[in-house]
Amino acid sequence: MNKNTDEHKHPDYKKIYYSLLILLVISIWGPVFALNIDNRTMLVGTVLLTAFGVGLIKATMVVAWFMHLDIEVKVVRRLLAVCIAFLILLFAGVAPEVLCFDGENRDADPDPIYEYPKKDITKPAH
């Protein structure tokens, strides 16, 4: 046996591919459909769920079965988890600063710094 490969069982890639395509259709259709929802919370929920939730499922499927992380040695999973954990830390530490530009402890600026609209945003979407 060649030292540089280690053979393993293959899942049915065609099946995975088709289910990925179905998920893709859901993730496109969901947010478009959501535009008709009046309730803001429902709208945001639907968009987040269909766009990012389904995206997460797609990514997990690709990682697990195309990149074979499901049968990979554990250390690989750990190193990827560490990278993602530190990214979450970065977001948690920076977001309070960058997101909040008119907090209680700052000089409140009555005019928003960022003035919109610069462009004609009433133009219809493509």
Partner: peptide, 17 residues
């Protein structure tokens, strides 16, 4: 491919938010 799977909702389909 996975990077694109995340960029796609971020830039294209989450415009309703």
């Amino acid at each position: 491919d996975i990077v694109w799977i995340f960029l796609f909702p971020l830039f294209y389909i989450a415009s309703g938010l």
